[in-house]
Design a protein around this nucleic acid. Structure first.
Length: 433
RNA sequence: GGCCCCAUCGUUCAGCGGUUAGGACACCAGGUUUUCAUCCUGGUAACACGGGUUCGAUUCCCGUUGGGGUCACCA
């Protein structure tokens, strides 16, 4: 039988990181088994399920590369079917009507839990059971005539032919009810796999107050969709060996529900950042350039046409796109800021200006200003002057960039160009003299 | 509180009766580099506790502790 999994979020505008991880696991399992991955939008809360919220959901899935195999099912279109099923359960004696609590709200339809111990095999947690005494009847249709989550969820899973329900383990208690519902409805019971929760640094479930609880937060910070996908896949699952940074195909090939852990995991932002750097370094240079351009243009920086040489220097040292702007600002403007600490530490010292003047003289005489020539001139000067690299390179770097660290100096100077380098050295001397 | 789930370095993932308890991130030290990042080498660091079972428990069972979930006419 072909595997059919689904992601069934209720669109609220922001997609929670825990929900998205469940989506990833569903997707991975469907792909691993050659089955289908479906989307069901549980949009019965008309207040929150706005078109914007739905498109935010779709965008988030698209960003993470979670492609679906069939048209999404919108739960709001299924109310008649849900209500019809409730009538069916009523007729079969699996449900009854009652003005619950005698509140005068009118009668709701209540599902009668079977008087037997409930048990099911969870793909991750093993055998899960519940004594009959610990289960209770529950409302499936409200007194206002609308279906409740349990009914709608189960019926839609049946409608979509879901074979594996992979969701957070906060649904374990619901599962006993759902299993009873499937049976009462005469439908085959799917397999269940309950994933451990993702928790925050305090060991509590992520809430809005923690920040970084939503997929959009990570996108805004410059994480790549591939990074988040890979990282989240590794939260509660591993291929069984030491691989961590993996391609999608590798993850698909190795994914097994039975190798998922059942204890909660917490997001380690530092490792996420590291992994993002790994993905960035693996990008094609052209893709990195494009990303850098977008980043800088969003920051209002005009990089001109040929900034690729700059980006090439940056790729291996970038972990988050947001680092690119500050690190490369001096390439695109003569009006860059000087790092005060660097100036005090390396520039305002005995003899430094004389060194800069001598370097400028040497540069002046260079007929070509390519990387090899500049590099050689620098080395020759260090050797002849007996000053040492530490007394020569830092001042030059600060003079042309205002910063005390950055990419290799020779290529930086080459990209800036001879005239510009000379002008900046002169300007720096004048300013700090 | 009832019921349920969970428990290996700071974090994450291995380990599935006998291991010097391993990898990754982070951290520390050294090397490479003009600086920073990268890269290379090495290091610090964990089986929550108590009982069993067993020749032998991180591993199996029970309990304790701790954390989490769930007990709606929310989803």
């Amino acid at each position: 039988m072909m595997t059919r999994t689904r992601f069934a979020p209720s669109p609220t505008g922001n997609v929670h990181i825990g929900n998205m991880r469940a989506a990833i696991f569903n997707w991975l399992y469907a792909r691993h088994t050659g089955g289908k991955f479906l989307l069901r939008v549980e949009d019965t809360d008309r207040e929150r399920s706005t078109p914007e919220a739905i498109s935010a959901l779709l965008d988030a899935m698209d960003w993470l590369g979670l492609d679906v195999d069939e048209e999404p099912l919108y739960q709001s279109t299924r109310m008649d079917a849900h209500l019809a099923a409730a009538e069916q359960l009523l007729a079969a004696g699996h449900a009854y009507k009652e003005d619950k609590g005698g509140t005068g709200q009118g009668e709701c339809i209540i599902f009668k839990m079977p008087q037997e111990d409930m048990i099911f095999e969870d793909e991750i947690k093993g055998t899960l059971k519940k004594a009959a005494a610990d289960t209770q009847d529950f409302v499936i249709v409200r007194s206002n005539g609308t279906p409740v989550f349990h009914l709608a969820n189960v019926l839609d899973d049946i409608e979509q032919g879901i074979t594996h329900v992979i969701r957070g383990d906060d649904h374990i208690e619901n599962t006993y009810r759902h299993v009873a519902l499937y049976k009462a409805l005469g439908a085959p019971v799917p397999k269940f796999a309950h994933l451990p929760m993702i928790i925050n640094a305090q060991g509590k479930p992520y809430s809005k107050r923690d920040g970084d609880a939503f997929v959009g937060d990570f996108k805004e910070k410059g994480f790549l969709g591939e990074t988040l996908f890979n990282y989240l896949a590794l939260l509660g699952w591993s291929p069984g060996d030491d691989r961590e940074v993996m391609t999608r195909d590798e993850m698909i090939a190795a994914f097994e529900l039975t190798s998922c852990k059942s204890s909660p995991a917490q997001v380690d932002l530092r490792k996420l950042v590291w992994m993002n750097g790994e993905y960035i370094r693996a990008m094609k240079p052209a893709a990195f350039s494009e990303m850098a351009r977008n980043e800088l243009s969003a920051a209002g920086v005009d990089v001109g046409a040929d900034a690729d040489a700059v980006f090439e220097l940056m790729q291996s040292r970038t972990k988050l796109p947001s680092e690119i702007g500050p690190a490369t600002a001096f390439f695109f403007t003569d009006d860059f800021e000087y790092d005060q600490k660097a100036v005090e530490k390396k520039l305002l010292k005995e003899g430094v200006f004389q060194t800069l003047e001598k370097i400028a003289e040497i540069f002046q005489t260079l007929e070509t200003f390519d990387e090899a020539t500049v590099d050689k001139a620098l080395h020759d000067f260090v050797e002849q002057s007996g000053l040492g690299f530490g007394a020569v390179m830092p001042p030059i770097r600060i003079a042309v960039s205002g910063q005390q660290s950055g990419p290799d100096l020779a290529p930086v100077l080459t990209i800036l160009g001879k005239d510009n380098v000379l002008a900046r050295i002169a300007k720096t001397i004048e300013r700090f003299s």
